[in-house]
Amino acid sequence: MIRLHITAEGQTEKAFVDQVLTPHLAHFDVYTDARCVLTSKDKRAAKEYRGGLISYQKAKADIETWMKEDANQECWFTSMFDLYALPEDFPGFDEAKRLEPYQRIERLEAAFGNEMNKPNFIPYIQLHEFESLILADPAKLDWEYLEHDQPIGNLVKMVGSQNPELINDGRETAPSKRILKEIPEYDKVTSGVSVAAHIGLDALRASCKHFDEWVSRLENLGGKE
């Protein structure tokens, strides 16, 4: 039995892991749990605040703390961070920003893995953010947003035959910004995860190459064919 701890950028990614990835990976004898990355602590109140990738150093320290808390041999760790708005102190950031998206993500993940320097850590950065998964099949937004035929149709037309992982990271043109432009009431934590689940892992993986590679690596941890 393999246990997999996933450090998620925020509540959306955590909910996606809990609701979609966890039941899927259980079929491969990989049992997951997820928590949002630590952002701050209130020592007086003994409280932790989690969610939001503020800095690389904070994320690294949080993952390293979890590794110390669970150092068992059968335990693995991974991340689910967005490329969009990635902190500039991330290893390899300056060099990677000059590269094409898939090369950029490869360079960043390699630098991340080298910095962590743990054989049981699998670095993963989502191209370009969680909403890339929604744009794998934006027509499924009607699962949550009834009577939005025209806005959803606009998104379907915009995506067309594009690779959703390559829909860019501009402040006004990132996947989430495109969805919000058409559906201002879009809520990523509840509706976004629900729509992604409705699209289904098979369709998400077919449209999102880098995401598929990550899921395959996680499946293979269990040693099943």
Rank of each mutant, 00 (worst) to 15 (best):
K68N: 03
L4I: 01
P175A: 09
W66C: 12
I125Q: 06
L4W: 00
S40R: 14
W76R: 00
H198L: 04
A61H: 12
A139H: 01
G10Y: 07
E115T: 15
A46K: 14
K68F: 07
V195S: 06
P151T: 03
E129D: 10
G52N: 09
N117W: 13
Q150H: 10
T22A: 15
K60F: 12
L127P: 10
F16E: 07
D142N: 14
A136N: 09
A34I: 05
R3P: 01
P123H: 01
R104Q: 13
V30Q: 00
F93G: 14
M80T: 05
D33K: 14
P87H: 15
L146Q: 15
K47I: 12
P123V: 02
K188A: 14
M1H: 14
Y102D: 02
A111T: 10
E88A: 09
I183Y: 09
E213C: 13
A111N: 11
L201C: 11
D70F: 02
S79N: 05
Q162T: 07
P87E: 09
K177N: 07
G92F: 09
A174E: 07
G223M: 04
N168D: 10
G192R: 00
W214G: 04
D94G: 06
F81Y: 11
G92C: 05
Y49N: 06
Q11F: 04
C36L: 02
R50H: 02
I122M: 05
R35P: 01
I54T: 08
Y84A: 07
A85H: 03
E165S: 01
F121R: 00
H24E: 06
A15F: 04
W214Q: 12
R217A: 13
R50A: 05
D33H: 11
L141Y: 10
N117V: 09
L166C: 03
R205Y: 10
E144H: 07
A15K: 13
E13I: 02
H27I: 04
R98F: 15
G153Q: 15
K43M: 05
D18H: 08
I54C: 09
H128Y: 15
Y145W: 01
T190P: 13
E131C: 12
H210F: 04
F90L: 02
I125Y: 05
Q126T: 04
P23G: 14
V193Q: 00
D137G: 09
A110F: 04
P119V: 06
G92S: 06
E88C: 08
A139K: 05
D33P: 07
Q73F: 10
Q19R: 15
I6D: 00
A197E: 12
G51I: 13
E48L: 14
E64L: 15
E109W: 04
I183E: 06
A8V: 14
E144V: 04
A136H: 08
E147H: 11
T22Q: 15
Q11W: 10
I6A: 01
A71Q: 06
K68A: 03
K181V: 05
G160K: 01
D149R: 10
